[in-house]
């Protein structure tokens, strides 16, 4: 089924109806670049390249990758905004490119940094518009509104103009707007970006509940490892338009040969600790030193050696974060990964 996955992750998908079906989908953009005073060069850029995966109804999947890897292009094709250049794509049995408006009734979309709420009007007005535009039956609308507003604690804010809401309140407001019409699938693009800890927790709790109670399929792109850890049993990693990993989050550490960091506090400033091939110093700041070692190996022998050979005061082990995990997996040679801005889809 997911033959592009490199096999180290999940072997099969949970039994269940296939809801999103992406088969050898590609998206090629033609980019014109200025190369001289009047000269322009045309290049073809493959933003998404032979991408295949399926998502079963009720799954909650994290979709991650560096900037420009093809995440948002994929989401745009799944929501019917963009037409694929090749391959086959179905959401709830609908071809998004051909039946955009029919699909719209089945999906909910929240783009983190872009609100769909009406800036100058009270929050409730935006919901009334959704009610009518999606032709939601009155009883259904009332029921959904009450439930969603309660779960996301927005009761007191319904009559407040959107421009007066905080970022977290607005995000919750957007999520309500995206769910009033009972979509089968919810696409979330960076739903917790810029939110404070409490708002983040509220959003995550809600999404978990939505998924378990109503069985809504959720596809989530994020930069926040905690979003994935707390919500998603399955992660897909995309880079250069290709799926490079598909499986549980835990497996990601192994696949990527990622590194953990040992933070060592010595009694005094010393030259970098020499542990040969088993660890390397990545940073020195006064008496504190950071050592990187493979995530798959135990820290115990390393700690023992350092304690024996150096005047050790304190130490701690840090787990890799999402960016490092992906970077380590994508650039396994140990080279420093290129900064995101230079990672183009070319």
């Amino acid at each position: 089924m997911s033959d592009t996955s490199d096999g180290t992750g999940r072997a099969s998908h949970p039994a269940g109806e296939v809801f999103i079906e992406v088969d050898e989908v590609e998206k090629v953009f033609e980019v014109r670049r200025k190369t001289g005073f009047l000269k322009r060069e045309r290049r073809q850029v493959r933003a998404v390249d032979a991408l295949s995966f399926t998502v079963a109804r009720g799954e909650m999947v994290g979709y991650i990758g560096p900037n420009g890897a093809g995440k948002s292009t994929t989401i745009k094709m799944l929501t019917g905004i963009l037409t694929p250049s090749g391959g086959r794509l179905r959401v709830a049995g609908i071809d998004p490119a051909r039946e955009r408006t029919r699909l719209a009734h089945r999906i909910g979309v929240v783009f983190g940094q872009r609100t769909t709420l009406w800036w100058d009007l009270p929050l409730i007005d935006s919901y009334r518009l959704t009610h009518r535009m999606y032709r939601i039956p009155d009883a259904r609308y009332r029921e959904n509104l009450d439930r969603l507003v309660e779960l996301l604690s927005l009761e007191s804010l319904l009559d407040v103009p959107v421009r007066q809401l905080s970022l977290g309140q607005r995000m919750r407001g957007d999520i309500v707007a995206a769910l009033l019409h009972d979509p089968d699938v919810l696409y979330l693009d960076e739903p917790t970006i810029g939110l404070d800890v409490i708002s983040k927790a509220k959003v995550r709790d809600f999404l978990r509940e939505l998924n378990t109670e109503r069985g809504t399929t959720v596809l989530l792109t994020t930069h926040d490892l905690q979003d994935i850890e707390q919500l998603c049993s399955r992660v897909m990693v995309i880079d250069h338009g290709r799926l490079v990993y598909d499986g549980p989050l835990a497996g990601l550490h192994e696949v990527g040969e990622s590194e953990r960091t040992l933070v060592v506090d010595l009694e005094r400033e010393l030259p970098p600790i020499d542990m040969g091939a088993s660890a390397r110093v990545v940073k020195v700041e006064g008496p504190r030193q950071w050592l990187a070692f493979p995530a798959s190996e135990s820290a115990a022998p390393l700690v023992a050696r350092i304690a024996a050979e150096y005047p050790l005061l304190d130490l701690s082990v840090r787990e890799p974060d999402i960016e490092t995990v992906i970077a380590a997996m994508l650039y396994p040679t140990g080279d420093t990964p290129r900064p995101p801005s230079e990672r183009t889809t070319a």
Binding site: G80, V109, F111
Partner: peptide, 13 residues
């Protein structure tokens, strides 16, 4: 500014 995309995910011409 990208807000055009939001019009494309609504069920209206």
């Amino acid at each position: 500014d990208g807000s055009f995309d939001m019009l494309l995910v609504r069920p209206a011409p």
